[in-house]
């Protein structure tokens, strides 16, 4: 299975969005995820199963303002 993360192809991702974030070393509390062009609520990270061709835009925030 191959998905697109921030415009780059990624092979053999985890089964769901929560697993993908762990795989990428990202803190789920500090990211905003767009899943197939819709914003994905963080409560649904674990329940959102990844499928071939899915496109994700993941932004990780750092503190400071």
């Amino acid at each position: 299975m191959t998905i697109i993360v921030n415009g780059t192809a990624k092979s053999d991702p985890a089964a769901d969005v929560a697993g993908l974030l762990t795989q990428l070393g990202l803190d789920p509390a500090r990211v905003a995820v767009e899943y197939n062009r819709n914003i994905l609520a963080r409560e649904r990270f674990a329940a959102t199963t990844l499928a071939d061709g899915d496109e994700l835009e993941i932004v990780q925030f750092v503190g400071g303002g």
Binding site: A32, N38, I39, V59, V62
Partner: peptide, 27 residues
């Protein structure tokens, strides 16, 4: 950072047609 992520998620879900400009990485 967590507040930034919460605001971005909430506003983009509620108002997807309206532009949002966030900031991250400026220290």
């Amino acid at each position: 950072a967590e507040q930034k992520a919460m605001l971005v998620e909430t506003f983009r879900a509620a108002c997807p047609e309206r532009p949002l400009i966030a900031a991250s990485g400026l220290a």
